[in-house]
Design a protein around this nucleic acid. Structure first.
Lengths: 176, 176
DNA sequence: GAAGATATGTCAGGACTGTTGACATAAATC
DNA sequence: GATTTATGTCAACAGTCCTGACATATCTTC
């Protein structure tokens, strides 16, 4: 109906289930519109380079995981190697990504972004980061941890673990 | 270059811009993984009915806006009428959606979900709602308003307005 | 060292979803 | 009556994902 902590129209108990349920219904639409507008700022940049979202995703994870293997990238993206191959081909042929034979395992093709690839990636990240910083600034600063916690909770356990190093950082930090 | 109130990484102040900036970088990935896993639960159901995400979106907004016009649906989805036509054709031919001539304007084709369409939509909504309720339960209850506020702030002003009736409810409520 | 497993690449074909451009019809509006 | 609006449709193209099959090079194991 309305806000996440609203209602309590009845007597006294089971206040949470009802509130969570209506909050979840609204959240379905929050996810749709927020994600669409979030990806939109990158899509506009990608258009200028005749690239799609799939190229963006590959470029992003190669850029933030320099030297990543094809297999690991496939695990992150959760697509087939044939799908990735097409995308990777464009990125490599376009000079945005380079390959390097693995050091220990010569079957591996380690992926690296070229300077041009990094330039494009910087542009994409800046645009999305700017959108998010504006959003964070216009929201109550106290909203941030809540946003983060809910987003993490929505993910599968497997995906959530990708963020855990950052989480445990805080607790394991002072051990140094 | 970046955030509206950002940088100046020099002497002593501006602690927030830096924090917001790194939070925004992490949020790029939060958006990617959370949205993917969120859509995944619906995708699995859609597979059983040989429908795609586009059908889900159309069915959803028809179901939650009974009697919506084609034009209004196009505005919400932000796609071309040719794209929608293909999707709508499947939904109508499959008996999930029905059309009705407009009352005031007989050019309009008002869209309505059939009982079967509602059954599928219920299934889809239940699955996503269950995922979100689980997420909300595993997160701190105080996280919810923050999540909502940030998601709203990420959207364009136009999309945010779709939620405003709900927002202003709280402030205009006591007027009754 | 031969056999099997692994990492990667590629060809072929199909499905879904989005786009542009062009045209058609019916009904509202001026 | 002329124009605009709401909707539908045909055609073609692009991007992204999938399945299935096969090929090559390089580990790993017995």
């Amino acid at each position: 109906m309305d806000g996440p902590l609203s209602d309590l129209p009845t007597t006294h108990d089971t206040p949470k289930p009802i509130a969570l349920d209506s909050a979840a219904l609204e959240a379905i639409e929050l996810m749709f519109f927020a994600y669409r507008d979030f990806t939109d700022v990158a899509d506009r940049i990608l258009e200028d380079h005749d690239l799609g979202r799939a190229h963006h995703r590959a470029l992003y994870f190669i850029g933030t995981n320099g030297g990543i293997t094809v297999g690991h990238l496939l695990e992150i993206l959760n697509i087939t190697k044939q799908s990735l191959a097409r995308v990777l081909r464009r990125l490599i042929d376009g000079g945005l990504v380079q390959q390097k034979v693995g050091n220990n395992d010569r079957r591996q093709r380690l992926l690296l972004v070229s300077p041009q690839g990094q330039a494009l990636l910087d542009e994409l990240i800046s645009a999305q980061r700017a959108l998010l910083v504006r959003a964070f600034n216009s929201a109550d600063p106290a909203s941030l941890p809540g946003f983060r916690q809910v987003m993490l909770s929505i993910m599968t356990e497997e995906d959530r673990q990708r963020f855990e190093p950052l989480v445990s950082d805080a607790s394991a930090d002072r051990a140094a």
